[in-house]
Design a protein around this nucleic acid. Structure first.
Length: 482
RNA sequence: CUGGGUGUGGCGCAGUUGGUAGCGCGCUACCUUGGGGUGGUAGAGGCCGCACGUUCAAGUCGUGUCACUCAGACCA
């Protein structure tokens, strides 16, 4: 009972015992989702959706600050439109859902339920881009998309999911390339500053890049168990789609040119990243900036005179700056502690007769469970300080986790050995051939290239590919993924 | 798509050689409750995943099917 690290809620399987089961337990016990009648489609419950709303609000502000505008394009893509870019259709055709009937009548052309909207945006851009004066076009949309997945898990992989997809058009290659990198940096900063998740960023190899893209950049946070989650991607398309869709503009010299294009996306999968980066055996731990409830007030001995009044007064005060909930239900205080720990509320505030007598209250961190007695006079400042500290500690812990599970391999044998015995990432040189990627994946049962990190040193003359031993072209970070 | 597991009140489970569907938690009402899931009393709640079959009789046996789940292959 006095052991602060003791597991309070027996319904949650411990991470150690079974990480996958732990994840499912947390997702359900924290009331984030429920299963629906359609395979792979999840019901996002109010508490889970509130997290998504906070994510949207934060990201949307970042996009708008950089000049992006929100739009809405249709749910359906005519098959002929999807066919226009051949790499793109090859990548997405296997997981498209098709609408073939309209009411009683079979459609002349079947309609794909959007798996992503590049083709629709291109079809629209063709109509609205004519002059360099029409560029850049910086568009974004917050929508649902459908990809008919074989194996599904809440948030991590669902047949339907919510995301934002940014689509931009630029006059020059330089501008489009800059946009691609800039938006990945927005994601990186969002992960660090808003979600308290440390991640590596870099470029995807040819084999792993988006269908139809020239280059794909990615953010790759590592989950608690050492497995990667592709946390957001930003693509540079060159003028490939523009050519396929015949989008042209007249430049400053009165010449006809193809614009250069980007797209970038981040989905509800990010909630899975939050759960698996920060959670523990007692449930969720939410980063303060997206937590639907930042501080929960638990009155102690609430039937005693003055306690609820004081608790309400505190709620009133704190609500001006924070998202606060007062739980005055007649469950016991201990029950409430466990309940809000399970739901990942980052900070708990306890207030009882003794505290009131001392003009103080107790703050308890969800992360460390440390108790802190603070004066009611400046409780707003103390709460703010505590939340900031929890954010910083979460970030540090996430960073330590990734760094502790970052290994190196010089030889094929070393690579396989690390892959088999040490869950995490592997830094290893690579020759640039897809064949070697394939070979490493087969030899390790699923370890793939995550990215060529931005901060990777250029290979020296004597650095060789971990697989074929030919001269190395890149340092690559490898790992298993969700 | 391949292979394993599971489907019984909201959740977790039991149910013997086929023979009256049970338990714990939760839920409702009332009382109780001072700092880590408080204790009590009384209640409500079931097409035993679905379909077909065997049988006097099916939660139980058979066939099929659907869903969930885990591990692979594919993907954000």
């Amino acid at each position: 009972m006095n052991n602060k690290n003791q597991k309070m809620v027996s319904e949650i399987t411990s991470m150690e015992t079974d990480f996958a089961q732990w994840y499912t337990d947390v997702v359900k016990k924290a009331e984030l989702v429920d299963y629906s009648g359609v395979k792979g489609c999840m019901i996002i419950r109010p508490y889970g959706y509130a997290i998504w709303e906070n994510i949207q609000k934060d990201l949307d502000a970042r996009f708008k600050k950089l000049g992006h505008e929100n739009v809405y394009l249709p749910l359906f893509i005519p098959e002929s439109l999807l066919q226009k870019e051949k790499d793109h259709v090859k990548g997405f055709a296997p997981e498209c859902a098709w609408v073939t009937f309209g009411g009683q009548n079979e459609l002349a052309e079947r309609l794909c339920v959007r798996p992503t909207s590049e083709t629709l945006f291109c079809d629209h851009f063709k109509n609205i881009i004519h002059s360099y004066r029409d560029l850049p076009k910086l568009y974004n949309q917050w929508v649902n998309v459908v990809r008919w997945e074989k194996t599904t898990r809440p948030f991590l992989r669902t047949s339907e999911f919510l995301w934002q997809e940014g689509h931009t058009m630029h006059e020059t290659e330089e501008q489009a390339r800059e946009e691609t990198q800039k938006m990945l940096e927005v994601y990186r900063d969002f992960y660090a500053d808003t979600l308290a998740i440390y991640a590596i960023t870099g470029k995807k190899t040819e084999k792993e890049k988006f269908a139809g893209a020239e280059e794909t950049y990615t953010i790759e946070p590592m989950m608690h168990n050492g497995i990667a989650l592709q946390g957001g991607t930003s693509h540079y398309f060159g003028d490939g789609f523009a050519k396929a869709f015949d989008i042209t503009y007249t430049d400053r010299e009165n010449k006809i040119r193809y614009p250069h294009q980007t797209s970038w996306g981040l989905s509800t999968r990010v909630i899975g990243a939050i759960i698996m980066s920060h959670g523990d055996d007692n449930g969720l731990i939410l980063p303060p900036k997206v937590a639907p409830i930042q501080t929960v007030i638990i009155p102690v001995a609430q039937h005693k005179e003055g306690v609820l009044e004081k608790a309400n007064e505190l709620k009133e005060r704190l609500s001006r700056k924070f998202r606060v909930k007062l739980d005055d239900s007649d469950n016991s205080a201990g029950w409430k502690y466990s309940e809000y720990e399970m739901k990942g509320v980052p900070l708990r505030l306890e207030i009882g007769p003794k505290d009131i007598e001392n003009n103080s209250c107790v703050l308890v961190s969800r992360l460390t469970r440390q108790k802190q007695f603070v004066s009611l006079d400046n409780v707003e400042d103390e709460v703010e300080k505590a939340l900031r500290q929890i954010h910083d500690q979460l970030y540090e812990r996430s960073k330590r986790n990734l760094e502790a599970k970052m290994f190196e391999a010089k030889t094929f044998e070393e690579f396989c050995d690390v892959a088999a015995n040490n869950p995490g990432y592997i830094r290893a040189f690579w020759c640039g051939e897809a064949e070697c990627e394939e070979k490493l994946k087969d030899a390790t049962g699923g370890v793939k290239s995550r990215c060529i990190p931005f901060d990777a040193p250029a290979p020296k003359d004597n650095d060789v590919c971990v697989c074929c031993k030919k001269k190395a072209k890149h340092l690559v970070v490898w790992g298993r993924q969700y």
